[in-house]
């Protein structure tokens, strides 16, 4: 399923917000069908990187390359629908392109929300809303699914179930998945690669490589069907630029 030709590449990407350099010389390749997780502490530029990759932020320098006709399915971290805007789940799923009713019903069934088609978006719970966002992104028939902090607000069991669902989606649709997590310690064991970001790419590799590397110690969680993995690492290289927040001590992240 995985081919070596990247469908999305970043080379030497720099992004500034005013005087603050948020991303610094970021190189990144995503190949067809692979699952990549970006981890890093708060303020490390994870969301900025994802928004740069979808085209919402123009990098100050560096290049982004997409495979021609690439379809992106984007699931934002938060989405506020103004209370003045009436919109049903079905109508929301048809943004920006409408889909046949059977396809909508199928998407809702897969999201585990078969009865909510005519419900107002504002009447959904946080978990239901998140699943509708994912269903909408999948209806775009994406080559790559991009998720910003998809497990935020979910408990451990909920996020484990979510990661299993992502693995299932990749298996069924063959799309690449790029996820962001601020939980440095929680890495999906099904990730093909983990990228640790702190303004720049600190380190990256398969979870196994990361786990066996001397500077990383991997600890696997229990009771989550192996979907959650814990790993710790220290930074052995210097940071020659300032970030508002460096990695917090690993002990702070222990579950």
């Amino acid at each position: 399923m995985t081919s070596t030709d990247p469908i999305l590449s970043a080379r030497g990407v720099n992004v500034r917000h005013g005087a603050l350099q948020v991303l610094h010389d970021v190189d990144l390749d995503i190949c067809r069908g692979e699952i990549v997780t970006i981890v890093g502490p708060n303020g490390s530029g994870k969301s900025t990187l994802l928004r740069t990759l979808i085209g919402a932020i123009r990098p100050d320098s560096g290049t982004l390359t997409r495979a021609p006709g690439l379809h992106i399915g984007y699931v934002p971290q938060k989405l506020h629908i103004d209370p003045t805007l009436p919109i049903t789940v079905t109508r929301f799923l048809g943004l920006p392109r409408r889909h046949p009713a059977a396809q909508i019903a199928d998407a809702l069934h897969h999201a585990g929300l078969p009865d909510l088609a005519q419900r107002q978006m504002s009447a959904l719970s946080g978990g239901q809303f998140q699943r509708v966002l994912l269903a909408r992104a999948l209806l775009e028939n994406p080559d790559i699914l991009m998720l910003d902090e998809p497990t935020q607000g979910l408990d451990q069991r909920g996020s484990a179930a979510f990661y299993l669902r992502i693995a299932e989606i990749r298996r069924e649709m063959g799309c690449a998945v790029l996820m962001v997590s601020h939980e440095l310690h929680v890495v999906m064991s099904a990730s093909d690669r983990v990228i640790c970001l702190n303004g720049h790419v600190c380190c990256s590799g398969t979870p196994e490589v990361v786990a066996s590397a001397p500077e990383y110690r991997a600890l696997f969680g229990t009771g989550t069907q192996g979907a959650l993995a814990l790993y710790r690492h220290t930074h052995d290289h210097g940071h020659d630029h300032d970030h508002p927040q460096e990695h917090a001590p690993v002990e702070d992240h222990a579950i």
Binding site: R51, I54, G55, A56, I72, G73, Y74, P76, L79, I81, D82, L85, I87, F92, L95, P96, R97, R98, E140, M146
Partner: peptide
Amino acid sequence: WSALLTGTVAPDLAIASGL
């Protein structure tokens, strides 16, 4: 209409869809 509506809900959703 549809592009405006998507951009109204969230500009990032519209951009990710190539609008």
